[in-house]
Design a binder for these strands. Structure first.
Lengths: 337, 337
DNA sequence: CTGAAAGCGCTTACAG
DNA sequence: CTGAAAGCGCTTACAG
């Protein structure tokens, strides 16, 4: 009943452990007859070599860690799926976990990765992550690729959407539709995505010589509760903005619920463009304009970057920004149209 | 630069490996002074014990495998998140992967789990899974909990939503709203969820003495393409059904897109109730009636079942069905209302 | 082509 | 309380 070992197989096949090992590892020059006996024994005993023993002896490093904030989040779920699919295809092991943006949880997984002797790491750093923590890992020769969020004070390969451009596209589109009083519900400024999307909003406004009223920037911190409050704040302004750019999907949903409850008419009373595509954004009435990230590609390319870095530890740092795509729908069109 | 070992630490702290090991494992009765020296050395060398060596020696089995069809799928993403959160909380290791409903991929992960010497397995078996494959694993003393999909010919603990009841609730609701000509777009009959949801539809109809026209049962096989065709088939009937029960989210989305393109009026021309809650089902016009699964709980309770089984290998098999919840919204209300 | 032996990094009786 | 030694399940020079 208990797992059989290489010795069991050797005994069963009446050969040495060395021979069994050679068969398992497809070493050439094994007598076909012995090989056959070994194969039969393996089959009979349902033998499966222990990965622990194997990696211990060979000092194997064929697995990488992959840390995102959440699996159930639409974007990160897709990112993770893209990563796992790619790892599977490349026959590489992957250890996919979620931090819940909790420093302690992140640390426990990082320690686990070290104990596991991973060949490298892809991580979306939790807010407030101490660069030193990642640096220490890097210093031990374990490459790290930053995903989605940059981390100042930590030099490493990075891959993410072009958040500045994405936000810029959304706001430029609103301007081109004739809106000038454009507000934003911004994400948390503790992570680079929040900062960059706000920057994109700012530069688009500046490029068109539109002055931003301080009150037009409200922080929803990427979550529904804060976003609800942020939206209320906008509605209470003396002069309500004509359009809003909302910096992620969760905050957009929160706003849309409020819009429905208040009977606000989109886009006539208020135009909306949101960052992150929603599964059925096109089925809403009106259909929602969104900035779509290539989430699965992000996951895949993060691993590519990492594998490349493992192979060439000394190549220059690479910063990859993947363009976003704008899905223009009714929620952001000009009133006249 | 390379990972340090217990010997390095022993040398650095000028103690034996045994002592280092004792410190790491919190064995009592270690001289406080030696302990301190070891701790300092560990810190200085960034030492992290190798999990491979550890498990090899101790024959540890503190990790379980977890296999779902897809991470990016809404339901299974939530299931996985629930499972990982629970494992984290219980300080247990979890190896979460997705099969893409592909037998070969499933097999590779299963083999990986065996090599990893997991303590147990939770699996949503891919269609056409040979019960024998799982049975062989079970026979090696590795408990398996089936999740979401039952597998005939394989006796094991099972946890899933009460799919019959869920479908039954949806159809009963439609009947109570006054509909009698109710069709269904059914899921794949290769998995128990598809079979059960169709059964729920059938029994609800039978209980109200409503005869089902054979054409009212169309198979969308849980995917968008087949669902689109299934819906077209329903629209081409001599007498179009008044209401449809759709057996999962992907198929519902496909139908809703067709409904929009054709300008069909919901619920006046056609009432709709769908299995699986959608993130913004309440924001659609009209809002969509859905059957909601307790996805995160499913993931958590699957692990609970497994841990319990690991502890009590011989307790009787447990079949757990978690009730679903109906979210009644406008899409399924009676025309008069 | 094959087997005996050493060793990977740990843990744990065992003796002191 | 501490250290030397054996051993977990493998792989791989090495000798034959």
């Amino acid at each position: 009943m208990n797992k059989s070992t290489i010795s069991d197989v050797a005994r069963e096949a009446d050969v040495s452990k060395s021979t069994v090992s050679r068969v398992i590892n497809d070493v050439p020059n094994v007598d076909p007859e012995l090989r056959e006996r070994v194969l039969v024994a393996i089959d009979k005993l349902d033998y499966q070599p222990s990965r622990a023993a194997r990696t211990l002896k060979k000092d194997l490093k064929d697995v990488v860690g992959f840390l995102v904030p959440s699996i159930s989040d639409t974007i990160f779920g897709d990112v993770m799926q893209g990563a796992e699919d790619y790892a599977y295809e490349k026959q590489m092991g992957i250890l996919p976990y979620s931090t819940a943006d909790d420093l302690e949880r992140q640390q426990r997984y990082l320690d686990g990765f070290l104990a596991e002797r991973v060949a490298g790491l892809v991580v979306v750093p939790a807010p407030q992550t101490d660069p030193q923590v990642l640096h220490t890992i890097q210093a031990q020769g374990i490459p790290i690729v930053l995903l989605d969020r940059k981390l100042t004070g930590f030099e490493a390969d990075y891959i993410g959407s072009d958040n500045i451009q994405g936000a810029h596209d959304a706001v430029t589109h609103l301007i081109e539709e004739g809106y000038t009083r454009i507000a934003t519900i911004a994400g948390s400024q503790q992570v680079s995505t929040g900062v960059d999307r706000l920057t994109g909003y700012r530069t688009a406004m500046a490029e068109h010589n539109l002055t931003i009223q301080p009150d037009w920037i409200q922080f929803g911190n990427f979550n529904k509760q804060d976003s609800y409050q942020a939206f209320q704040n906008l509605l209470q302004l003396d002069k309500i903005p004509e359009a809003i750019f909302i910096a992620n999907d969760a905050m957009t949903i929160s706003v849309l619920r409020a819009v429905r409850d208040l009977g606000i008419c989109i886009p006539d009373d208020l135009a909306i463009a949101g960052f992150d595509e929603l599964l059925i954004a096109d089925l809403l009435t009106p259909a929602l304009t969104t900035i779509e990230q290539a989430a699965e590609s992000l996951g895949q390319e993060a691993l590519q970057l990492l594998f490349d870095r493992i192979q060439y530890p000394n190549r220059p740092t690479r910063i990859v920004q993947i363009p976003t795509k704008i899905n223009i729908r009714e929620s952001s069109l000009s009133k006249s149209s």
